[in-house]
C-alpha cells in the first residue's frame, strides 16, 4: 500500500513539470516579440526593452526556464503588472470566494447526483431513467452563463429570494455568506450533476450486470442492500474518479460563474488578468489551478486504496 502511495506521489512530478513547461512556453512560443505583446499596443520601445530585461527574454530558452522554475520552487510567481503586488499574494486574497463556491458546488452535486444515478440505474429504461438522461443532456448543453442569468432573472429579479450579485466573506457571518453563494453554486452544479449522475448511473448499471449481484439476489437480500452495499460499493471507483476529473470542468465553470455573479475570486482574477494582459498573473493562476487539479486527482487515486481492496500494488 505504501508502495502504491509512493509511486502515485512520484508520478505527479512529471505531470507538474510538463504543466510548468507548457505554461512557460505559452508566452515564449507566441508568434511575434513576447515583450511587445506583454507591453501592449501603446508601449514605447523603452518600456518593451525594460520588460525584455526583467524577464530575461534575451537569454536562451533553457536558461530562461531554469531561472523561472527556480523562482517557482521558492513559491515566487512574480509580480502582477496591473495590480503591482506579488501574484502569490493576489491569489491568496482571491482564494476564499472561489474555494467556498467550489466546495458548496461539489457538496450539492454529490448529494443530488449520486442518489439520482443509482435510482436511474435500478429502474434502467423506465421513465425516471429517461427523465434523468434527458436532464443530463440538457445540463451538458446549457451554457453556464445563460443558466446563471436565467436564475438571476427568475430567483433574484422576479422572486427576490436571493441577492442579484456579489459576495460576502464568511467572516461577515455564515447566513449572508451562504445567501450570496447558493445561487452561484446551483448554477455551477448543474453541469457537474449532469456528469456525475450519468457516470453513477452507468457504473451502477455495469455493476448490476455482474455475477456478484446475481449472487446477492440469490442470497435473498433486500433490494436496497443489493443496490447499496453491492452495486454502489463496486461503482465507487469510477464515481470518485469522475468527481476528480470533473474538477477541470468546475474550474472552467468558476471562471464564468464568478463573472456572471460578480464574485471577486480567482476566476474573476483570471478574466481581468487576460483583459489587462497581466502576464505574470495569468501564468500564476493557470499554474495554481492546474496544481489544484493534479492534487485533487492524486487524492482521488489514493482513495482507491480504501474503496477497492484489490488495489494494493
Amino acid at each position: 500500500m505504501y508502495q502504491f502511495i509512493a509511486r502515485r506521489l512520484l508520478s505527479t512530478i512529471p505531470v507538474l513539470v510538463i504543466v510548468a513547461v507548457l505554461v512557460f512556453l505559452l508566452l515564449r512560443l507566441t508568434p511575434g516579440d513576447p515583450a511587445a505583446i506583454l507591453a501592449g499596443d501603446a508601449a514605447s520601445t523603452q518600456q518593451i526593452e525594460e520588460i525584455r530585461e526583467t524577464l530575461g527574454l534575451d537569454r536562451p530558452l533553457p536558461v530562461q526556464f531554469a531561472i523561472w522554475v527556480g523562482q517557482l520552487l521558492q513559491g515566487d510567481l512574480g509580480e502582477s503588472y496591473y495590480y503591482k503586488v506579488r501574484v502569490t499574494e493576489l491569489i491568496a486574497q482571491r482564494l476564499e470566494p472561489t474555494m467556498s463556491l467550489a466546495a458548496l458546488t461539489i457538496v450539492i452535486a454529490i448529494l443530488v447526483a449520486v442518489p439520482l444515478g443509482v435510482v436511474a440505474a435500478w429502474r434502467f429504461g423506465g421513465w425516471f431513467d429517461r427523465f434523468l438522461m434527458g436532464f443530463s443532456v440538457f445540463g451538458f448543453s446549457v451554457p453556464v452563463f445563460v443558466l446563471g442569468y436565467l436564475l438571476v432573472w427568475l430567483a433574484s429579479l422576479k422572486l427576490g429570494w436571493f441577492p442579484v450579485q456579489g459576495y460576502k466573506p464568511i467572516a461577515n457571518g455564515f447566513g449572508p455568506f451562504l445567501h450570496h453563494l447558493v445561487l452561484p453554486a446551483i448554477t455551477l452544479s448543474v453541469i457537474y450533476i449532469a456528469l456525475l449522475a450519468r457516470v453513477t448511473r452507468a457504473s451502477v448499471l455495469e455493476a448490476l450486470g455482474e455475477d456478484y449481484i446475481r449472487t446477492a439476489r440469490a442470497k435473498g437480500l433486500a433490494e436496497s442492500r443489493v443496490l447499496i452495499s453491492h452495486a454502489l460499493a463496486n461503482a465507487a471507483v469510477p464515481i470518485v474518479t469522475i468527481i476528480g476529473i470533473g474538477i477541470a470542468l468546475l474550474i472552467g465553470g468558476v471562471v464564468v460563474t464568478e463573472s456572471v455573479y460578480a464574485i471577486p475570486g480567482l476566476g474573476r482574477l483570471t478574466v481581468d488578468a487576460v483583459l489587462s494582459r497581466d502576464f505574470p498573473t495569468i501564468q500564476g493562476v493557470i499554474l495554481f489551478f492546474s496544481f489544484i487539479y493534479v492534487v485533487v486527482n492524486l487524492l482521488v487515486d489514493l482513495s482507491y486504496v480504501f474503496l477497492d481492496p484489490r488495489i494494493r500494488y
Partner: peptide, 16 residues
Amino acid sequence: MSMVFQEPMTALNPVM
C-alpha cells in the same frame, strides 16, 4: 433453496 454459480472469480463481491 440456494445456488452456486459457474465463475467463482466474479460471483463474489470483490470489495467485501
